[in-house]
Design a protein around this nucleic acid. Structure first.
Length: 420
RNA sequence: GUGGGCGUCGCCUAGCGGUUAAGGCGCCAGGUUGUGGCCCUGGAGACCGAGGGUUCAAAUCCCUCCGCCCACCCCA
């Protein structure tokens, strides 16, 4: 075992992973483009208060999962644990409030959370996310949900369930939590040990308990939907109506509560059918108060983030690995003049847009051929002293029996190798 | 933070008190002084996660630590 390893919960992406990752990333960006969303890249590091003020200092993310540090100038910085806060900071900083509204943005990049790693959970994770800022209408919620749904569809992710809920405003949640606590209090002694703990730390989680799913006190618990004010209820009804007319399947799940404090009104999760512990593949919600928390004017917003590692995990389960990329031409340098001539030939062929792999000088021709085969090259070009002097190469197709070998002037090699 | 499982060449695995620590894949070379895929031969590559102990003898037994994985919590 090497004594130096990647930090816990952070992983190398190897060449063999490239094809799948590229596919996922391209699909995300392509679909975002179809919805006329534009890319934004914000720093991986922000002033810590960007998150302290928005995500909620009571939340697990801030209270125990954030990488915070002081730089040499004594600035208190944080590795971003999520993407929305940074995007909103940029929205304010660049005066996007004076752009045509809403501003439609997407991002793709690493996030950091000091969690204990496990399957589908990492300390460095990659998220693709979308933000629609400046539109308070239910149509914006549905546009974002539809975008996310399309991404999964285009990725070929099967059997994904959309669960939505409305959590109203912070005031709604406060009233609801009080009512829930009051409702459960008399039943606490009859709840499972686990639920009793949850009752103390996070009452909402009691409703999630598998053990107590059939418990009368849990089944009869009040629903947050009954605590929504009129505006919230109307908004939620509109969202559902639009989803219905779009033909998007969903289920209303009053137990969904996003982990971040800034959410308001609509919240949702996408979950694959074979759900395990870490199964949520992407989630989103409306965050109408967020920009104000960052010192900007009151501005509505809605967005989602999806975990690329979790998508990849699901994709790997349901499909065969994609083929690795291979060069069009392998050039085998021989003799004294071979290496230099091979490089000249490589430049020539590459300028024609073809991928070229150079063989190691000093190796026998036999070894060169073997390398060319393992590399999966379609053609091999041999350049030794004779060829170098004549400005040619011996070109031969690989992969088939009895392929003919021909001497070709260097300028024409690209033409011979070019796929037709 | 709390439980559980596991650490033997780059990868997968055998060995479970006494072996020069074995095999497969991969890598390198040779089988034609400039011709491949298959095959054959050879080679390089492991202080058996680290440290301590028990024993005449430890990869094998015991302890501690570290790391990885899985689960809880929470979340993407």
């Amino acid at each position: 075992m090497a004594d130096l390893q990647a930090p816990r919960g952070m992983h190398d992406l190897l060449p063999e992973d490239e094809a799948l990752w590229r596919f996922v990333r391209d699909t995300c960006e392509r679909v975002a483009g179809l919805f006329d969303y534009r890319m934004i890249s914000t720093p991986m590091v922000e002033d810590a208060s960007v998150f302290l003020r928005t995500v909620g200092d009571e939340s697990d993310i801030v209270s125990k999962e954030m990488y915070v540090f002081e730089d040499r100038g004594k600035e208190r910085l944080a590795l971003r644990p999520e993407g929305t806060a940074g995007v909103c900071r940029a929205y304010i900083e660049h005066g996007m409030g004076s752009w045509p509204q809403p501003v439609r943005l997407y991002y793709f990049g690493p996030m950091f959370r000091y969690d204990r790693p496990q399957a589908g959970r990492y300390r460095q994770l990659t998220q693709f996310g979308v933000e629609c800022i400046g539109d308070a209408s239910a149509a914006a919620d549905v546009e974002v949900i539809e975008l996310q749904r399309t991404v999964y569809e285009e990725l070929g992710l099967n059997d994904i369930t959309l669960r939505i809920n409305s959590i109203g405003t912070a005031a709604t949640r406060r009233r609801y939590l009080d009512a829930l606590t009051e409702h459960l209090l008399p039943h606490v002694p009859t709840l499972s040990h686990d639920s009793q703990r949850r009752f103390e730390t996070n009452v909402l989680r009691v409703l999630d308990s598998k053990e107590d799913a059939g418990h009368p006190a849990v089944q009869g618990a009040p629903s947050i939907l009954d605590f929504l004010d009129e505006g919230d209820a109307t908004h939620f009804a509109e969202v559902r109506g639009l989803l219905d007319r779009l033909g998007v399947a969903y289920e209303v799940d009053p137990r969904i509560v996003r982990g971040l404090d800034y959410y308001a009104r609509t919240v949702w999760e996408f979950e694959p059918a074979d759900g395990g512990g870490q199964s949520t593949v992407g989630a989103g919600g409306r965050y109408d108060g967020l920009i104000e928390l960052l010192g900007g004017p009151h501005t509505p917003g809605v967005g989602f983030a999806t975990g690329i590692e979790r998508i990849v995990l699901n994709l790997r389960e349901q499909s065969a690995p994609t083929a690795a990329a291979s060069p069009d031409l392998f050039i085998a340098p021989l003799g004294e003049a071979g290496p230099a001539a091979a490089m000249r030939l490589a430049r020539e062929v590459r300028s024609g847009g073809l991928a070229v792999r150079l063989g190691m000088p000093g190796r026998g021709l036999r070894a060169q051929f073997r390398s060319a085969e393992t590399a999966g090259a379609r053609f091999i070009a041999i350049v030794g002293d004779t060829e170098a002097e004549r400005g040619t190469a011996q070109v031969k197709a690989l992969g088939l029996d009895g392929a003919e070998q021909q001497e070709v002037v260097m300028q024409d090699v690209a033409l011979v190798v070019m796929p037709r």
